[in-house]
Design a protein around this nucleic acid. Structure first.
Length: 404
DNA sequence: TCTGGGGTCCTAGGACCC
DNA sequence: TCTGGGGTCCTAGGACCC
């Protein structure tokens, strides 16, 4: 039985949501209608373009490029900051509206959802539901979405990426040849900037070129990734719409430093702040981690990371911090560091793990839980450990940025 | 005034075991 | 003399996504 899948994608999400929020709060200009972007903080060296208005796009501004470059392309460009509280609110509003149509709904990212309506159409046509969602979102939420209509997730997602904004598109199997195969291969989901030149060297320029290629050749050349590329180019995707994302597989926190840091003492303070974030979020999810990973980025953008397994899984700030410091000491080569990250991996559900008497440090658990309650109640920065104070500004506000 | 931060998944190579 | 082969686990790095 053919499945009935929709993909809903918010047009210029961060910019649209900011526009709606500002209009609602008395601002008279709709920033969607001027050359504008949502950008990071240039002084904190996180100044990249996160979203752009259609007019900004016409000036050649692309997502991900430094704001500095974007300004050179358009001197009238207006730059607005991110506000994840606002974004999460509108994201939730959208999810709520879409949940009226099916229980089988997957939040793919802050601004994208998949809906499986196979058993929820009640005699209606999928395309009619798609148009209704498109119209309702615009009318009730004041921002616009593209809706992709098809029989699997990949095709629905490719469809929603066709002409924007505020459009409904179908991409059924019989339409693949006409609608998808002529597109440049870079448009295919999962074909990124490293793969495009490799395919280009093989004479593959369009998705159609890729689809018609010998599957075994691709497997030999790209392994598992080759199978996936070939399947996607041919519109094949059996993956289910996941009603509920399982627990995260890792939890991390990283920060670009306002200035390069070249002292282990300074780095340790930053690691402390990051460990507090990571372990706090672990406990919030009721998860414990078996592996701690530390990432460093040098001033010339070389990334490296080291990890260490713990004897016993934990969510204790103290234990994660101790391990992270050990790793840092081992890997740090006395060079200017631009970014520091801490990540907890190999997560397990705390309730499902039989806690041994030795690893269950009840006293530390209690301290963490008291601190967590205060943080939850009064906001994350209401309480800090002694060493953290002078890096507060660096990490300040970051906990609010965590998408989903 | 140049380049975020949150993730997932895959691979190659080394250690170690039988 | 000439140094297997399969399997698992771990690590570091790199690809991709939004």
């Amino acid at each position: 039985m053919e499945r009935q899948i929709l993909h809903v994608d918010v047009n210029n999400a961060f910019l649209s949501w900011t526009a709606v929020y500002m209009l609602k709060n008395g601002y008279h200009t709709d920033i969607r209608k001027i050359p504008s972007i949502i950008g990071g903080d240039e002084e904190r060296r996180s100044g990249i373009v996160l979203a752009k208005s259609p007019i900004a796009k016409k000036f050649g501004i692309v997502t991900g490029e430094p704001i500095y470059f974007a300004r050179k392309k358009c001197n009238k460009l207006e730059v607005f900051p991110v506000n994840f509280e606002v974004f999460n609110k509108y994201s939730n509003d959208l999810f709520k509206l879409l949940s009226e149509y099916t229980d089988k709904i997957e939040r793919f990212s802050i601004d994208e959802c998949f809906l499986d309506l196979t058993h929820y159409l009640r005699g209606r046509k999928l395309i009619d539901v798609a148009y209704e969602i498109n119209k309702r979102v615009e009318k009730e939420l004041k921002f616009t979405v593209n809706v992709g209509v098809s029989s699997n997730k990949l095709l629905a997602k490719m469809a929603s990426d066709f002409e924007k904004p505020n459009k409904v598109h179908t991409l059924y199997e019989y339409e693949i040849e006409d609608k998808m195969w002529p597109l440049p291969v870079s448009e295919l989901f999962m074909i990124g900037r490293k793969t495009v030149p490799k395919l280009y060297n093989l004479g593959i320029k369009t998705i159609g070129d890729l689809a018609k290629l010998d599957k075994d050749f691709l497997i030999k050349r790209f392994g598992k990734f080759g199978i996936m590329m070939w399947n996607y180019a041919n519109g094949i995707d059996d993956s289910e719409v996941e009603e509920r994302k399982e627990d995260p597989k890792s939890i991390g926190n990283s920060v670009t430093l306002p200035k390069d840091v070249n002292s282990i003492e300074e780095l340790e303070k930053i690691v402390l702040a990051l460990c507090e974030q990571v372990s706090f979020r672990l406990r919030k999810h009721n998860l414990i981690a078996n592996t701690v990973n530390v990432q460093l980025r040098t001033k010339d953008f070389k990334d490296y990371s080291h990890q260490k397994q713990l004897k016993f899984s934990t969510s204790s700030t103290k234990e994660i911090l101790e391990t992270a410091k050990e790793i840092l000491k081992e890997m740090y080569k006395n060079e200017p560091i631009r970014l520091v990250g801490v990540r907890a991996d190999n997560l397990e559900d705390k309730n499902e793990v039989q806690l041994s008497i030795f690893k269950n440090d009840e006293k530390q658990d209690k301290i963490d839980s008291v601190l967590d309650n205060i943080k939850t109640k009064y906001g994350y920065n209401s309480i800090t450990r002694a060493g953290k104070l002078d890096v507060e500004n660096i990490v300040k506000g970051k906990e609010k940025k965590n998408q989903l």
